[in-house]
Structure formats: structure tokens, C-alpha cells
Design a protein around this nucleic acid. Structure first.
Lengths: 337, 337
DNA sequence: TTGTATGCGTTATCAT
DNA sequence: ATGATAACGCATACAA
């Protein structure tokens, strides 16, 4: 490994001069500076992040908490897309990404301790049980944190605009003449609550009274439970003309059930998903859904965690709502009323 | 931050004794040792990975190269599943995962230099252009590497058994009475070549002569191109009774095309995918496919890179074939012949 | 403008 | 069994 010392020997300058030159210090003369850089290049020098960190206390490393509980996490296209965007933007800003977990090796390590151990400058938290005491510990620590899709006090949150999403969907469905709209929603989380509120509020604005048996709880990313809920809805004496699903992937369960009953989308029943994953747009008919802007979500998360790190004194936590986009698809039938 | 020095002061022992005690050295007496550990615990001590690395030259950090070119990488369920497994196993062994890229910050950095910069003990390489000179540079470097789904000389490779996969599929399809089997394969890679060879070989063994126009090239993970190929196959004067797809996801394109033509799976046409992603088993009918064992792939990769790291002298590069599993599904019709 | 000296937190060597 | 000291590679305060 070629170190600053080697360059010092070869170039004849002291290690501190070399260090300064390599870091672009204005103290060093232009000639010396470029000469040293040339030598460093020739020798194939690269700084050692660990040694630098030890001095500067900056690791240029961002931790990410993307826990994979029951098929969520990396298996979930929404989250893997967000992660990918976080990674790209962070790298662009000169930061690397390290996964944070507990249980590193044999010993248990809290999320916070893992971050300290790896000297993470900051952490991006998503797709995790936000009530977990160890998550709370991390968020309340001195380490800058940014959360995705969940609001904590004194912590920047990047949020997909779930209310607008559901509102846009309901309005579009309403505008196509539907009055009997059912909603299969995911398990109880803050995201679900916002979506449900948005659903009820928009329905009320449209003058729609949604019967209780049109509202079903299923689980996110779980076609089975959504399939079950779909069956129940279709068996009602007065079934809905349109069903909204927790997410695009869950809709697959509904799709199977609908086909099983010999019904056709959208002629016999209209459907809408949520997320706008790739799959939703390769299905035929294309699924009506609300595309969350995963790229913007990840990018904002990365940008803000870096700002929180570099401007620690002046940075003020904020909430950033990321707008999505209605993809109308072809799964909503225009009906007369 | 509480350091070894703080513990030294509080406990009254020297820093070296503390260090040894904390690392479970046999030099230290049992009483002293447990006392020091107790103090360390009380003070909430955690070692600093960077400082330790500086001395030991072990980062306990594994780099991963999972490049995201055109929807592959993290967006690809197969690779994200493998990555997840690598991560879990590596963490279990006491290693963290860091993404390796070029272009960290403004400056270009080769994969190799990025690894050096972050002091990666080893690297797992997957889903990447294996012909890229910078990938080759990394593999030929002194840093231990393990590749997934590609063989390099002197480098351990973890390989999904593509020949068995295709063989099992063809045999199953043949056993169900199909004689007119078409194969839409992915773009030309070593994986594709193996699959194609397996296809031809098995067909020959079964005594099948496959006409050239039954073989179509599409792209992996791209429903559109597979849809196109499907249309061409269906328009043949003597169309196949079964179509094999590059992967489960691409099959969606075929599915749409088949439905568009008013045909029904499996009654009118049989189909098979590859990968065995979650989606394939929630579709109705369930897709006949070959499930690659992503968990085993990732686990073996992690295990082997750690072995290559810890037993650098004696470790011998090898090729490990991971068996998959035929998921028969319901998309292959049993026909008489 | 350049060089000297020091220390970041840890481990390793060698002495006691 | 325990401790003093040096060293890992780098950046910086301070001296020249």
C-alpha cells in the first residue's frame, strides 16, 4: 500500500506538505502542488479512509436501515427502488452506503452501536418498525438521521404524499362514474392511516357514503390476503364496481380471484393499485395506480442526510412531501350513472 | 465517545491490559478480565472499527458489486434476493456490507481503488459486465473476490445450475406430452449459453428436433421483447404447444400477448418461466418455472469470501454449483401424443 | 511556502 | 499477569 510517507520520500517533500497538496490546500505553491500530485498519481496513491476518519471524524459513510421483515425490505420493489436512489445520490455526493443491522457476528449490537462502530456520519431509516425502542434510540441520538415515510420529532422526514395519492385515485375513479368504491387497505401503520383518511375525506367531498363492508383490511405486499378480501367483496349482495388495493403487488391476489369468478377487468369490475411498480405497467390491462416517486424520495433522503451532516449547526429538520403521479392505466371502466 | 483509555482510567488498568481483556486474551487473569468487561459495559464502550482497522488491517467489511444497469441490479428480484442473502450471512459472520461503485463524489475511482479506499477485506461480484476491464482488474488484484454466475480463473464462483434447470424444465414439459417446444432466451451471456446448451442437449436426448424458428432471442427482465417473440411464435403456421421464457418476469409480456390473442393458459398454450420469483407463484395459473436458490447462492458467496479472507494462504478457489428446484405450477397442460 | 511534531483509538511488541 | 511504548496513515497546529 502506498502511503503519504512514500510520496514524501519520493518527492522530497515532507508528509505534511504532501498531505496539504493532495487536499488542495492554498498554502502550497502551485508548482509543488502539481508535482506532488503527479508523483502520487504515478505511484497509484489512494487515501486510506480509516486513517483519515481517525483524524477528521468524518467517515463519509452513511448507514441505511432497511430491515427485511416478512418479504418487505429488499424484496419490496418500492423500497429497493428507494434504496437504489439513496445509494446513487449518496455516491454522487461522495458518500458510501453501509447496511446497519443488529447482530453483527455473534454479539448483539444495537442499531446505534452499530452506527458508532462504523462511524456512520448519518443514517437513513426506512421500512422498519418505527416503534422499536432501538430505532427510537438511534433517532434520538446525536447521529443525524433522516426517515422515510414516517415522522419523528426533530428528525427530517421524506414522505410520499399518500393523501394526494389516494385523493387522486378516488377522484379519477369517481370521474369515471363509479359510486360504489371499495378499499382494501394494508395493516395499520401511519401510512395506512393517512391513506384511509384521504380516502374517506375525498369520498365525503364527492358526496359518497361508503358502507363499512366496502372497507377491508389486508396486508401490504401480500396477494393472498387481498385475494381473500376481494372474494368477500365480490360475494356481497351489492358488490362494488371498483376495488382499490393496498399496493400493486397485492392486486395480483385480487386479479386471480376476479378471474376465478369469471369476471373481466375492467368490463365487469374496475381495479386500482398503489405504488406504480414496473409490474403494474406490463400487466394487461395496465393497472390504474398511483406511482410513488421513488427516485425523488431516495434523492431527497440522501441530500438531506448529507446536509444534516455537513451543516450540523444550522440544519433544521423538516418534512418533505414528495409528489407522485396518477397512472390511469386501463383498469377503470368508464360507466354511466 | 468512550474509548479504551477511559476504561483504563476508570478501571485502574493500563490500556494494553484493557485491550487484551476486551479481546479475550488468555494472558489476562479471569478476575481482571471480567472486571474490565464489566466496567466497559457500564460505560457503554464500543470499539472503533477504523482505529482497529488501522492496526490490524482487517476491516471486517465486504464490498459488493451489484451494478444497476437497465433495470437489473436491485430492481431485479433475483439479484436483490441474492444480495439480501449475502448480507444476512455476512452479518452473521461479523462482516458488514458496503456497496462498491465508481464515481464516488466528483472523482472517478476504479472499483479496485474504491475497495482499497474502504479497506474491503474481500468483494462479492454479481450482476455486472464481467468483461469490464475494471472488473477484471479487481478480480486479478490481491483482494479476495467471489463471483456469482460467472467463472473467472483463480476466483471462486458461485453458480446457479442453469443446465440442470433447463434440463429439468424440458424433461417435465416433454413428460407432459409436449413435442413442439419453443424457447425464448435472453441476450447472449455465459448464463444464456449454458441454458441454451442445456436446452438443445436435452431436446436431443428426448429425440426432439427443434426448428430454428422456435428459438427466439429476447432480453432478460423485459416483458416487451418477450411479448414480441411470443407473437411471432403464435403466428407461425405450425406454432409450438409450449413456450419457455427467459425469466418469470419476461413471461408477463408473453402472458399479455397470449391473452390478447384470446388464448388461454394452459388449455391453448403451455408456458414456463425461470427464476421462481414470488410473482410466479401468485399468478393463476401458477407458473411452471425453475426456482433458483437465491438464499443458498448468497450464503455460499458470503461464506466463501470470508473463508478466502481468513484463510488467505490455504484457500483454494473453487466453483460451487447451487441446485435449484422445479416448480411445476399449473401452466403446463398434460397432452396426449 | 514548507517542515516538525502530535494525536486520533487501537493493537502488538517487548519489558517487567 | 500486567504495563510502557511504538506504530498504523493521516491531518493539523504550530514553528520556521
Amino acid at each position: 500500500m502506498v502511503t503519504i510517507k512514500d510520496i514524501s520520500k519520493k518527492s522530497g517533500y515532507s508528509t505534511s506538505t504532501v498531505s496539504k497538496a493532495l487536499n488542495g490546500s492554498s498554502e502550497i505553491g502551485e508548482n509543488t502542488s502539481s508535482f506532488i500530485r503527479k508523483v502520487a498519481n504515478e505511484m497509484g496513491y489512494f487515501p486510506n479512509a480509516a486513517a483519515r476518519l481517525l483524524k477528521t471524524n468524518h467517515s463519509n459513510n452513511i448507514g441505511v436501515l432497511f430491515i427485511d421483515e416478512m418479504q418487505s425490505g429488499l424484496a419490496h420493489e418500492y423500497f429497493s427502488a428507494v434504496l437504489n436512489s439513496v445509494k446513487d445520490e449518496a455516491e454522487h455526493l461522495g458518500y458510501d452506503i453501509t447496511f446497519i443491522s443488529r447482530n453483527i457476528g455473534k454479539m448483539h449490537m444495537s442499531y446505534y452501536n452499530h452506527c458508532k462502530y462504523r462511524n456512520c456520519d448519518g443514517v437513513v431509516i426506512a421500512c422498519v418498525d418505527f416503534n422499536d425502542p432501538e430505532v427510537v434510540e438511534l433517532i434520538q441520538s446525536e447521529i443525524p438521521t433522516v426517515t422515510i415515510d414516517h415522522i419523528f420529532n426533530d428528525c427530517t422526514a421524506i414522505l410520499s404524499d399518500n393523501i394526494s395519492g389516494v385523493t387522486d385515485l378516488v377522484k379519477y375513479i369517481y370521474d369515471n362514474g363509479h359510486r360504489k368504491i371499495a378499499y382494501i387497505h394494508g395493516e395499520n401503520t401511519s401510512v395506512t392511516q393517512r391513506r384511509l383518511s384521504g380516502f374517506y375525506k375525498t369520498c365525503k367531498e364527492m358526496g359518497l357514503e361508503i358502507p363499512n363492508n366496502y372497507i377491508k383490511e389486508a396486508r401490504y405486499h401480500d396477494p393472498k390476503s387481498s385475494g381473500l378480501a376481494t372474494r368477500e367483496l365480490l360475494q356481497l349482495s351489492d358488490p362494488p364496481s371498483c376495488i382499490m388495493y393496498p399496493d400493486d403487488f397485492s392486486f395480483i391476489g385480487g386479479m386471480n380471484e376476479i378471474e376465478k369468478q369469471g369476471l373481466k377487468i375492467p368490463d365487469d369490475i374496475s381495479v386500482a393499485g398503489y405504488d406504480g411498480i414496473y409490474l403494474s405497467q406490463v400487466l394487461r390491462p395496465k393497472l390504474c395506480t398511483f406511482k410513488q416517486n421513488t427516485e425523488a424520495l431516495g434523492k431527497e433522503a440522501a441530500n438531506n442526510i448529507v446536509m444534516a451532516i455537513t451543516e450540523k449547526k444550522t440544519y433544521i429538520p423538516k418534512q418533505i412531501w414528495i409528489e407522485g403521479e396518477l397512472l390511469t392505466g386501463k383498469s377503470i371502466k368508464k360507466i354511466d350513472f
